[in-house]
Design a protein around this nucleic acid. Sequence first.
DNA 1: ATTAGGG
DNA 2: CCCTAAT
Length: 654
Amino acid sequence: MVLQKRLDYGFNGYQVPPVPRATRSARRRGSFKKKHEENQICAFDLLAIVAGKLLLDKKKLLPVLVIHQRTKINVQLLIVLSKESLVTQNDLNLGLASALTKPDCAERSNAERLVSGQTKNEIGTFASKAEGDSSEYREFGDCKSEAATKRAVKDEPHKSGMVQSSTVVNMCNLEDPVVLDAKPPALVSSDSRAKVPACGNHISNSSYPTNQDDLHVVSRDDDENSSGCTHPITTKKFFRPAPRIGDRRIRKFLASKCWKVAPRLKDATVSNSDGNFKPVFRKRQNCYRHQRSERIYPFKKRKHFAYSSPSNSDGGMSCEFVSDLSLKGSNGDASVSRSRMHGATGASSSFAGQRTSFLPRDSHVKLRIKSFSVPEFLIEIPESSTVGSLKRTVMEAVTAILGSGLHVGVLLQGKKVREDNKTLRQTGISHNNQLDALGFCLEPNPSQTPPSLSPGDSPFLLQCDTPQPIRRYPPTTGEVHQDICADPEPHVNNLGNYIESDHDSAPSPTDTSMDKSTNSKALVAVPAMNVEALAVVPAHQKSKRSEIAQRRIRRPFSVTEVEALVHAVEKLGTGRWRDVKLQAFDNAKHRTYVDLKDKWKTLVHTARISPQQRRGAPVPQELLDRVLTAHAYWSQQQAKQQFKHQQAETCLLL
DNA sequence: ATTAGGG
DNA sequence: CCCTAAT
């Protein structure tokens, strides 16, 4: 999800920590402009948090983890949205909001006040009101105070986290035994306890299924109007311990005055992939927009991969895996663990409990899902909106998403486990696993999300269904056309799989969380924590690519393509890649003019190096020679041109 | 949207 | 191939 920039959280002084891939170069250049991609992902956490709350509220949503027939693992997220929550008071859908703010929480009163204080009309006004004042919050002062406040909040554990605690408490009361629990030998349990505030109310933070630490709202830089101010928090969506702090952060975040929302969208709407949710909120809040595929804001390429396959479109996962091999009757143990865990894990389920009771002898694997990252979506909300409305908005968005049929993906060692019928044992999900071995992620319902393969560049649709001669470019050989049009590359038809496997099993080293922590000097709101978290949970290394734009599949140029390229350049010269594209590769949709330019660049390079140094499919020397010749020629032409221009200018000056 | 370059 | 800056 992307809390679209419009939100100025008063962190002008903060910089988004450079992240691996997307910002490597930027980092080098010392520029952070437009480098928020990665962080946007972090915003997922916000959702995760909210979602977590939703999930915890059995009244609203009930996540269920089903351990199917002894060994089969079949995780499903069953979401039950009660009527209550939908019909709640007035038009504001407070029901959902209330999920966030529960009783006996100082915060809540505040939030609630905001919420209840609003009327439909007010909301409506906000949108329009926000129009003009979006440029006055960027003062440094604000940011500072914000930061300060944050710190302060951080230091007051008991004062924070109330919102959630209440929810958690609720969990404790669930009649259902908590199955997704865990008592990892030492790490987790001790950890959770340590984090639990003295306050009796603050039970189980660690068991709270959200990445509270990750609550980060990121700004979009590509937004013309954005101030560039961001509130990054983390760039890792992987589970992070010390939820408490996160909670505080959340509260802080939600309550922050600094954040503002640019009012660009007066009538934003929820465009859920599912669509069923849209109508409702659209009426209520004309300031919310949820985009499923396009929300992937920052990445231009995104649009090409918006329909990424289920495998790579999951919202990311952040979870924790704790195993427990104890054989226990579901009942007794469940209660125990429940109390121990303070109730809660993202999912509790009686199903599991029941199941287990039938399978007394089977060794049980306990899982505690720390959090779910929800697939990103975009939100725009007037800065004049109240915190309460923001909450609702997010809540609604989450609800919409969750309600649209998300699937749960299981990842082991960063790889997706697709064999639903395999047993945990077979799959390797056992107590022997390390804490970070298992992961869960929410992914769009395949049935609703068209399989990947960008429409425009779908290899499945052969580049050229109807091979047609290249226009103006007088073909030297017919084969050129053929090649270009049909793109005989054998692997194209496997693109889908290719991408998947790539995504699943080839986590880039640069995507490591370690890498991030290393570079987090840029000052995030959660420095130390990141480190800590990362240390505990190494990283499931889910290729960032899945979140960000997919890297295009590599498609080496064939000799015929090179031939065509050379020919075109010979005629058109360098620097006219668009024309080259149009003339020689108009039918090769996957070859952009940038690609051609790049290829030419490499060709020139290749031609200059010794044959021994060349790699890949050899290019006929003849072609390389032509490359050098053409390159030299056009370079000269270019030089001449420049010279002439200079001459002209000089003359004018004189 | 293109072009030019660095990575 | 990707990413950006500059057009």
